[in-house]
Computed example of a mutant assay.
Amino acid sequence: MTKTVRSLADLKPLARELAASRAAAELERERRAAAQRLADQERRVFELTVGPVTPLRRVDRVLHDLAQPSPEPRQREADERAVLLQALSDDIDIDTLLDTDETLSFRRDGISVEVVRKLRRGHWALQGQLDLHGLRRDAAREALSLFIHDSARRGLRCVRVVHGKGHGSPGREPVLKGRVRRWLVQKNEVLAFVQARGSDGGAGALIVLLTGTA
């Protein structure tokens, strides 16, 4: 609203208002200048401390929510692992379970002799192998159990297990050879096994037939 000046007396209040307005504006300018000087000083101190700084180029981006990974059934896997290991005994007597041929082959009830002959002749292609060389008894038992279980779960039909001929063992006796046979006959996934042919490892390996092939 514009004031009407009627006399010189009316100019005094107006002059005071103008002076107060100018003083307030000047005070605001000084406040902003002081803030800028402080910011410049802090920036110089930072540069002297860490060296020259190049501002990063600002890039507009969209942040997406990351999908949470599926929970891993670790407890169930641990339970299955424990069951697999507990199921294999070193004390089982397998002499009556092995066929009394030159290689002491094995076939489960219901598996014909012809299946064993085919297995020995290499009728089924090898689809997997486990080498137990250098493993101690417990480690070998665990590795064999998990290998047979996993191979059957993946649908493998014929695999080879290398237990060695014992040339590097004390007394040159094959430490794992008998144990591997004992462990295999206890695995429900195993239908039959025979000693490997010479080209496949001979007396140091077994060819194992898994469920679903006979």
Rank of each mutant, 00 (worst) to 15 (best):
P52M: 10
L126W: 04
Q129A: 14
R157W: 03
S105A: 14
S151D: 09
G202L: 06
I111Y: 07
D95A: 03
L130P: 02
L27N: 11
Q68W: 07
A143N: 08
A19K: 11
A34W: 05
L130H: 12
D200A: 13
L38E: 15
A139N: 13
K165R: 15
T96F: 00
L38P: 01
V45G: 01
A23E: 15
S199C: 03
F46E: 13
P55S: 13
G164D: 06
T2I: 12
G171A: 02
S70Q: 10
S169R: 09
I111G: 01
A143S: 12
P13Q: 10
L14Y: 01
V161D: 08
R181G: 11
G178W: 14
A67H: 04
G202T: 05
L156P: 05
A24I: 01
A205M: 06
Q186D: 07
W124Y: 15
F193W: 10
R6L: 08
D65C: 08
E17N: 06
D79V: 06
V113Q: 07
G178P: 14
L126E: 12
L176W: 02
Q68P: 05
Q86H: 07
L63R: 04
A214D: 13
R108N: 02
L144S: 12
T54M: 12
A192Q: 11
A19M: 07
I207N: 03
E42L: 15
D95I: 00
V190Q: 06
G166K: 04
A214V: 08
L130W: 05
L156C: 08
R121S: 15
E47M: 11
W183D: 12
L209C: 06
R181N: 10
S21W: 05
A15W: 12
R44S: 12
P174V: 01
D91K: 02
L8G: 05
P52V: 08
T211P: 00
L14D: 02
F193G: 04
I94P: 01
P13D: 07
V162E: 02
V83A: 13
D91W: 00
R182W: 00
L38C: 11
Q86E: 13
A20D: 09
L176E: 06
G128F: 12
R37W: 11
K177V: 09
A23Q: 14
Q186W: 13
Q195H: 11
R121P: 01
V115S: 02
L85D: 00
K118A: 07
W183P: 12
L135G: 04
G204N: 06
N188C: 01
L66H: 09
E102C: 04
R43D: 13
D60M: 04
G171M: 01
H133C: 10
K118N: 14
K12S: 10
D131I: 06
A67G: 07
T100Q: 10
S70D: 06
R22E: 11
Q68H: 09
I92K: 07
E173P: 00
R136P: 08
R58Q: 14
